[in-house]
Design a protein around this nucleic acid. Structure first.
Length: 304
DNA sequence: AAACGTTGCAACCGCTTTCCA
DNA sequence: TTGGAAAGCGGTTGCAACGTT
């Protein structure tokens, strides 16, 4: 069971808690470099760290491990999170397996701070079908649009990440994280996500990936999928969703500015609605929103 | 500029699952 | 088969940075 159970010399000595120091990080990295991962309790005892094995493991897996990717989630990653969460729910570690370099903790934080925030503002349950519909009808298509429009989007994985050294240098221990690492390299959105197969049900075969296979699940998108002109890197996006004012900043939904047109001004049919969205797309220019409150409100209203 | 509120994320906690003798 | 230890997981909390008044 956990290391707090029972009592021995190691546990009786004063254990450190809270933010990790540079010295502790260095010690942990050095120990793992020499002895490898695993045996966390043993590591905690032998490394000289006054931490629990559990704490050491968490620090390593969530922060120090060299292949950890830091910085804002790309639209591709956000799309995957939304898609996989709709399928598996709060299975963070499982979702994280399909986002190389991202940790379950990071994904969990993204969901809580970004996604659930929107649900709270709408006063609806983040796990409700209504909210899921809103995600599928508005958020995800816009992410696809972003993925198709951004030529400078970060790669899904930074294979050159030497995060360890970089992080030690940049990490304000206990404080807010450093600015995201940048890598201008361009990759296929799912090049390194080989195990992700959105079309399969429970089990995901670790082989081919074709994100466009997710399209039948996305209303408004499937009708365009047959036209190669509408596809990008295997994705197909709806030209009526989103528009020309695509922002290229990190998270797509940090802020949700009120749409210029109120929901009542939007058309009643889907196509009318989509057209209105295109017409009103300066919203994305004003803020960083992939969607806005009126839009969500409209979709949720339609769904109920 | 200072006080206060909000945000984002690292770290912790407790429970479950897996491993192994 | 069983029981203890280790590892894994998801929920929650604490706090520094940032934004607003």
């Amino acid at each position: 069971m956990s290391e707090r159970r029972g009592s021995n010399k190691f546990e009786d000595m004063e254990l450190r808690r809270g933010p990790w120091t540079l010295e502790e990080d260095t010690l942990l990295i050095h120990y793992i470099a020499c002895h490898g991962e695993g045996r966390w309790n043993l590591l905690a005892k032998c490394s000289g760290l006054k931490r629990t094995g559990k704490s050491c493991r968490l620090r390593w897996l969530n922060y120090l491990k060299p292949d950890i990717k830091r910085g804002n989630l790309s639209p591709e990653e956000q799309f995957l999170i939304l898609e996989l969460h709709s399928k598996w729910g709060n299975r963070w570690s499982r979702i994280a397996q399909h986002l190389p370099g991202r940790t379950d903790n990071e994904i969990k934080n993204y969901w809580r701070t970004r996604v659930q925030k929107q649900a709270r503002q709408l006063k609806i349950d983040a796990n409700s079908a209504t909210f899921r519909d809103a995600i599928r009808c508005s958020w995800m298509p816009r992410l696809l649009e972003k993925m198709g429009s951004s030529q400078s989007m970060p790669p899904l994985i930074d294979s050159n990440a030497t995060a360890t050294a970089g992080m030690i240098d940049q990490t304000p221990h206990g404080g807010r994280p450093p600015q995201p690492f940048s890598n201008p390299a361009m990759q296929h959105p799912f090049e390194n996500c080989s195990s992700y197969d959105p079309s399969s049900s429970e089990n995901h075969s670790p082989s081919t990936s074709s994100a466009s296979m997710a399209l039948p699940k996305l209303p408004y998108l499937s009708e365009f999928s047959s036209n190669p002109a509408n596809s990008y890197h295997g994705f197909t996006f709806n030209p009526f969703m989103g528009g020309h004012c695509i922002d290229h900043s990190g998270y797509g939904l940090d802020t949700m500015d009120p749409a210029p047109a109120s929901a009542s001004q939007l058309g009643s049919s889907v196509s009318e609605y989509n057209y209105s969205m295109a017409a009103n797309n300066c919203v994305d220019n004003i803020g960083d929103g992939l969607w806005n409150m009126d839009e969500l409100w409209y979709i949720c209203k339609k769904a109920t």
